[in-house]
Amino acid sequence: MIGAAPSPPSHDVTATAPTPMIELRGVRKEFPGPTGTPVVAVDGVSLRVAAGELLCLIGTSGCGKTTTMKMINRLVEPSDGEIRVDGRDIRERDPTVLRRGIGYVIQKGGLFPHLSVAGNVGLLCRLEGWERARIEARVAELLQLVNLAQELATRYPRELSGGQRQRVGVARALALDPPLVLMDEPFGALDPITRRQLHAELRQLQDRVGKTIVLVTHDLGEAFALGDRVALMDRGRIVQLGTEADFRERPATPFVEEFVREHVRGSGA
Protein backbone atom coordinates (compact mmCIF):
# COMPACT_ATOMS: atom_id res chain seq x y z
CA MET A 1 0.00 0.00 0.00
CA ILE A 2 2.00 2.83 -1.32
CA GLY A 3 1.15 6.27 0.00
CA ALA A 4 -2.06 5.11 1.60
CA ALA A 5 -1.25 7.04 4.73
CA PRO A 6 -4.82 7.81 5.86
CA SER A 7 -5.86 4.16 6.05
CA PRO A 8 -5.14 2.45 9.33
CA PRO A 9 -2.32 -0.13 9.29
CA SER A 10 -3.66 -3.41 8.05
CA HIS A 11 -2.89 -5.56 11.10
CA ASP A 12 -5.27 -3.38 13.11
CA VAL A 13 -8.11 -4.13 10.74
CA THR A 14 -7.47 -7.86 10.82
CA ALA A 15 -7.58 -7.81 14.54
CA THR A 16 -10.81 -5.87 15.01
CA ALA A 17 -12.98 -5.73 11.83
CA PRO A 18 -15.22 -8.60 10.70
CA THR A 19 -14.04 -10.65 7.70
CA PRO A 20 -13.97 -8.35 4.65
CA MET A 21 -16.00 -9.40 1.59
CA ILE A 22 -12.91 -9.04 -0.60
CA GLU A 23 -9.31 -9.12 0.41
CA LEU A 24 -6.30 -8.74 -1.89
CA ARG A 25 -2.82 -9.35 -0.49
CA GLY A 26 0.27 -8.45 -2.51
CA VAL A 27 -1.46 -9.26 -5.80
CA ARG A 28 0.72 -9.01 -8.84
CA LYS A 29 0.04 -9.66 -12.52
CA GLU A 30 2.56 -9.91 -15.31
CA PHE A 31 1.70 -10.35 -18.96
CA PRO A 32 4.17 -11.59 -21.54
CA GLY A 33 5.41 -8.47 -23.31
CA PRO A 34 6.01 -8.04 -27.02
CA THR A 35 9.79 -7.93 -26.56
CA GLY A 36 9.94 -10.97 -24.30
CA THR A 37 10.33 -9.08 -21.05
CA PRO A 38 7.14 -9.35 -19.02
CA VAL A 39 4.93 -6.29 -18.60
CA VAL A 40 3.76 -5.69 -15.05
CA ALA A 41 0.08 -4.73 -15.10
CA VAL A 42 -0.61 -4.96 -11.39
CA ASP A 43 2.29 -4.53 -8.98
CA GLY A 44 1.65 -5.64 -5.42
CA VAL A 45 -1.89 -4.46 -4.71
CA SER A 46 -3.38 -5.06 -1.27
CA LEU A 47 -6.83 -3.89 -0.28
CA ARG A 48 -9.96 -4.88 1.59
CA VAL A 49 -13.58 -4.21 0.73
CA ALA A 50 -16.05 -4.53 3.57
CA ALA A 51 -19.42 -6.18 3.09
CA GLY A 52 -21.93 -3.64 1.78
CA GLU A 53 -19.21 -1.22 0.71
CA LEU A 54 -19.00 0.36 -2.74
CA LEU A 55 -15.40 0.77 -3.74
CA CYS A 56 -14.40 2.62 -6.88
CA LEU A 57 -11.18 1.70 -8.65
CA ILE A 58 -10.03 4.67 -10.65
CA GLY A 59 -7.05 5.65 -12.77
CA THR A 60 -5.93 6.43 -16.29
CA SER A 61 -6.16 3.72 -18.91
CA GLY A 62 -3.47 1.08 -18.48
CA CYS A 63 -3.10 1.70 -14.77
CA GLY A 64 -4.20 -1.85 -13.92
CA LYS A 65 -7.65 -1.13 -12.49
CA THR A 66 -9.56 -3.45 -14.83
CA THR A 67 -6.98 -6.22 -14.46
CA THR A 68 -7.27 -5.91 -10.70
CA MET A 69 -11.03 -6.29 -10.92
CA LYS A 70 -10.90 -9.24 -13.33
CA MET A 71 -8.64 -11.11 -10.94
CA ILE A 72 -11.44 -11.08 -8.35
CA ASN A 73 -13.67 -13.31 -10.52
CA ARG A 74 -10.73 -15.21 -12.00
CA LEU A 75 -11.13 -13.90 -15.53
CA VAL A 76 -7.45 -13.10 -15.02
CA GLU A 77 -5.25 -15.31 -12.84
CA PRO A 78 -2.75 -13.44 -10.60
CA SER A 79 0.95 -14.13 -11.05
CA ASP A 80 1.50 -13.73 -7.33
CA GLY A 81 -0.35 -12.83 -4.15
CA GLU A 82 -3.60 -13.98 -2.65
CA ILE A 83 -7.23 -13.06 -3.15
CA ARG A 84 -10.02 -13.99 -0.75
CA VAL A 85 -13.73 -13.55 -1.34
CA ASP A 86 -15.91 -13.93 1.71
CA GLY A 87 -12.91 -15.29 3.55
CA ARG A 88 -12.11 -18.08 1.08
CA ASP A 89 -9.11 -18.23 -1.22
CA ILE A 90 -10.55 -18.03 -4.74
CA ARG A 91 -7.89 -20.38 -6.12
CA GLU A 92 -9.57 -23.17 -4.24
CA ARG A 93 -12.94 -22.47 -5.83
CA ASP A 94 -14.36 -23.66 -9.10
CA PRO A 95 -14.33 -20.58 -11.37
CA THR A 96 -17.88 -21.16 -12.59
CA VAL A 97 -19.30 -21.53 -9.10
CA LEU A 98 -17.29 -18.54 -7.89
CA ARG A 99 -18.53 -16.35 -10.76
CA ARG A 100 -22.18 -17.25 -10.27
CA GLY A 101 -21.80 -15.77 -6.79
CA ILE A 102 -20.36 -12.54 -8.23
CA GLY A 103 -22.44 -10.26 -10.42
CA TYR A 104 -20.64 -8.88 -13.48
CA VAL A 105 -21.54 -5.76 -15.40
CA ILE A 106 -19.51 -4.42 -18.31
CA GLN A 107 -19.56 -1.33 -20.46
CA LYS A 108 -22.67 -0.99 -22.64
CA GLY A 109 -24.19 -3.82 -20.62
CA GLY A 110 -22.57 -6.66 -22.56
CA LEU A 111 -26.02 -7.98 -23.46
CA PHE A 112 -26.34 -11.00 -25.76
CA PRO A 113 -27.94 -9.64 -28.94
CA HIS A 114 -29.67 -12.92 -29.77
CA LEU A 115 -31.53 -13.10 -26.45
CA SER A 116 -34.47 -10.94 -25.41
CA VAL A 117 -34.30 -8.78 -22.29
CA ALA A 118 -35.97 -11.56 -20.33
CA GLY A 119 -33.59 -14.09 -21.90
CA ASN A 120 -30.58 -12.05 -20.85
CA VAL A 121 -31.79 -11.32 -17.34
CA GLY A 122 -33.03 -14.85 -16.68
CA LEU A 123 -30.12 -16.68 -18.35
CA LEU A 124 -28.32 -17.68 -15.16
CA CYS A 125 -31.59 -18.69 -13.46
CA ARG A 126 -32.25 -20.96 -16.45
CA LEU A 127 -28.79 -22.49 -16.20
CA GLU A 128 -29.36 -23.03 -12.49
CA GLY A 129 -32.39 -25.09 -13.44
CA TRP A 130 -35.08 -22.82 -12.05
CA GLU A 131 -38.66 -23.45 -13.05
CA ARG A 132 -40.14 -21.25 -15.72
CA ALA A 133 -42.63 -19.48 -13.48
CA ARG A 134 -39.97 -18.70 -10.93
CA ILE A 135 -37.68 -17.29 -13.64
CA GLU A 136 -40.49 -15.10 -14.98
CA ALA A 137 -41.25 -13.78 -11.52
CA ARG A 138 -37.60 -13.07 -10.87
CA VAL A 139 -37.19 -11.24 -14.19
CA ALA A 140 -40.23 -9.09 -13.42
CA GLU A 141 -38.89 -8.31 -9.98
CA LEU A 142 -35.47 -7.35 -11.35
CA LEU A 143 -36.90 -5.15 -14.11
CA GLN A 144 -38.85 -3.29 -11.49
CA LEU A 145 -35.76 -2.98 -9.32
CA VAL A 146 -33.83 -1.25 -12.12
CA ASN A 147 -36.84 0.91 -13.11
CA LEU A 148 -37.61 -0.76 -16.42
CA ALA A 149 -41.14 -1.23 -17.76
CA GLN A 150 -42.30 -4.84 -17.85
CA GLU A 151 -43.17 -4.57 -21.57
CA LEU A 152 -39.47 -4.41 -22.34
CA ALA A 153 -39.04 -8.05 -21.33
CA THR A 154 -39.75 -9.29 -24.87
CA ARG A 155 -37.57 -6.70 -26.62
CA TYR A 156 -34.13 -7.41 -28.01
CA PRO A 157 -31.04 -5.43 -27.00
CA ARG A 158 -30.78 -3.55 -30.30
CA GLU A 159 -34.28 -2.20 -29.68
CA LEU A 160 -33.22 -0.52 -26.42
CA SER A 161 -31.58 2.81 -25.62
CA GLY A 162 -28.12 2.89 -24.07
CA GLY A 163 -29.50 3.63 -20.60
CA GLN A 164 -32.04 0.82 -20.88
CA ARG A 165 -29.34 -1.64 -21.91
CA GLN A 166 -27.22 -0.67 -18.95
CA ARG A 167 -30.16 -1.20 -16.58
CA VAL A 168 -30.75 -4.64 -18.12
CA GLY A 169 -27.05 -5.36 -17.58
CA VAL A 170 -27.38 -4.52 -13.90
CA ALA A 171 -30.58 -6.55 -13.57
CA ARG A 172 -28.84 -9.53 -15.18
CA ALA A 173 -25.92 -9.26 -12.76
CA LEU A 174 -28.33 -9.36 -9.81
CA ALA A 175 -30.31 -12.35 -11.09
CA LEU A 176 -28.93 -14.90 -8.64
CA ASP A 177 -28.81 -12.32 -5.84
CA PRO A 178 -25.02 -12.41 -5.47
CA PRO A 179 -23.56 -10.67 -2.41
CA LEU A 180 -20.84 -9.12 -4.57
CA VAL A 181 -21.03 -7.25 -7.89
CA LEU A 182 -18.18 -6.21 -10.17
CA MET A 183 -18.81 -3.32 -12.56
CA ASP A 184 -16.37 -2.47 -15.34
CA GLU A 185 -16.96 1.11 -16.53
CA PRO A 186 -20.71 0.48 -16.49
CA PHE A 187 -21.70 4.03 -17.39
CA GLY A 188 -18.81 4.90 -19.69
CA ALA A 189 -20.79 4.86 -22.94
CA LEU A 190 -23.73 6.97 -21.77
CA ASP A 191 -24.54 10.64 -22.18
CA PRO A 192 -24.04 12.83 -19.04
CA ILE A 193 -27.74 13.17 -18.22
CA THR A 194 -28.48 9.46 -18.40
CA ARG A 195 -25.29 8.78 -16.48
CA ARG A 196 -26.26 11.10 -13.63
CA GLN A 197 -29.71 9.52 -13.51
CA LEU A 198 -28.20 6.03 -13.35
CA HIS A 199 -25.80 7.17 -10.60
CA ALA A 200 -28.77 8.18 -8.50
CA GLU A 201 -30.53 4.91 -9.25
CA LEU A 202 -27.46 2.85 -8.38
CA ARG A 203 -27.18 4.59 -5.02
CA GLN A 204 -30.87 3.97 -4.28
CA LEU A 205 -30.45 0.38 -5.39
CA GLN A 206 -27.42 -0.02 -3.17
CA ASP A 207 -29.45 1.33 -0.22
CA ARG A 208 -32.11 -1.30 -0.88
CA VAL A 209 -30.05 -4.39 -1.74
CA GLY A 210 -26.84 -3.64 0.17
CA LYS A 211 -24.43 -5.41 -2.16
CA THR A 212 -20.69 -5.20 -2.00
CA ILE A 213 -19.68 -3.46 -5.22
CA VAL A 214 -16.35 -2.90 -6.91
CA LEU A 215 -16.75 -0.38 -9.71
CA VAL A 216 -14.04 0.49 -12.21
CA THR A 217 -14.16 3.97 -13.74
CA HIS A 218 -11.88 6.62 -15.18
CA ASP A 219 -14.18 9.45 -14.09
CA LEU A 220 -13.28 10.85 -10.68
CA GLY A 221 -16.61 12.65 -10.40
CA GLU A 222 -18.38 9.32 -10.81
CA ALA A 223 -16.05 7.72 -8.28
CA PHE A 224 -16.71 10.46 -5.72
CA ALA A 225 -20.44 10.40 -6.40
CA LEU A 226 -20.78 6.63 -5.99
CA GLY A 227 -17.91 5.29 -3.94
CA ASP A 228 -17.88 4.89 -0.19
CA ARG A 229 -14.15 4.82 -0.80
CA VAL A 230 -12.02 5.41 -3.87
CA ALA A 231 -8.77 3.67 -4.80
CA LEU A 232 -6.63 5.62 -7.26
CA MET A 233 -4.24 3.43 -9.24
CA ASP A 234 -1.19 4.39 -11.26
CA ARG A 235 1.23 2.06 -13.02
CA GLY A 236 -0.12 -1.03 -11.30
CA ARG A 237 -0.08 0.32 -7.76
CA ILE A 238 -2.67 1.92 -5.50
CA VAL A 239 -1.51 5.50 -4.95
CA GLN A 240 -4.23 6.51 -2.54
CA LEU A 241 -7.22 4.78 -0.98
CA GLY A 242 -9.76 6.90 0.87
CA THR A 243 -12.87 9.06 0.80
CA GLU A 244 -13.48 12.16 -1.29
CA ALA A 245 -12.44 14.31 1.64
CA ASP A 246 -9.16 12.43 1.97
CA PHE A 247 -8.40 13.05 -1.71
CA ARG A 248 -9.29 16.73 -1.56
CA GLU A 249 -7.76 17.59 1.76
CA ARG A 250 -4.92 15.12 2.17
CA PRO A 251 -3.62 14.07 -1.27
CA ALA A 252 -0.97 11.42 -0.69
CA THR A 253 1.34 12.46 -3.53
CA PRO A 254 1.73 15.28 -6.04
CA PHE A 255 0.25 12.86 -8.63
CA VAL A 256 -2.97 12.57 -6.64
CA GLU A 257 -3.14 16.32 -6.19
CA GLU A 258 -2.67 16.81 -9.92
CA PHE A 259 -5.24 14.11 -10.76
CA VAL A 260 -7.87 15.75 -8.54
CA ARG A 261 -7.13 19.23 -9.90
CA GLU A 262 -7.37 17.97 -13.53
CA HIS A 263 -10.71 16.43 -12.76
CA VAL A 264 -12.08 19.60 -11.14
CA ARG A 265 -10.97 21.68 -14.12
CA GLY A 266 -12.23 19.09 -16.61
CA SER A 267 -15.68 18.96 -15.08
CA GLY A 268 -15.90 22.78 -15.08
CA ALA A 269 -16.53 23.02 -11.33
Binding site: N73, T96, Y104, G110, F112, P113, H114, L124, L127
Partner: peptide, 25 residues
Protein backbone atom coordinates in the same frame (compact mmCIF):
# COMPACT_ATOMS: atom_id res chain seq x y z
CA UNK B 1 -14.75 -11.05 -27.57
CA UNK B 2 -16.39 -8.78 -24.99
CA UNK B 3 -19.55 -10.85 -25.18
CA UNK B 4 -17.57 -14.02 -24.67
CA UNK B 5 -15.83 -12.48 -21.68
CA UNK B 6 -19.14 -11.21 -20.30
CA UNK B 7 -20.50 -14.75 -20.59
CA UNK B 8 -17.50 -16.26 -18.84
CA UNK B 9 -17.56 -13.54 -16.19
CA UNK B 10 -21.21 -14.32 -15.47
CA UNK B 11 -20.28 -17.90 -14.72
CA UNK B 12 -21.06 -19.79 -17.95
CA UNK B 13 -18.98 -22.91 -18.49
CA UNK B 14 -16.96 -23.19 -21.70
CA UNK B 15 -19.56 -25.52 -23.18
CA UNK B 16 -22.35 -23.09 -22.27
CA UNK B 17 -20.46 -20.17 -23.78
CA UNK B 18 -20.17 -22.16 -27.01
CA UNK B 19 -23.75 -23.40 -27.09
CA UNK B 20 -25.55 -20.31 -25.82
CA UNK B 21 -23.42 -17.48 -27.12
CA UNK B 22 -20.86 -18.34 -29.79
CA UNK B 23 -22.86 -20.77 -31.94
CA UNK B 24 -26.06 -18.70 -32.10
CA UNK B 25 -24.07 -15.62 -33.01
Amino acid sequence: PELVEAARGMGLTDAQVLRLVELPL
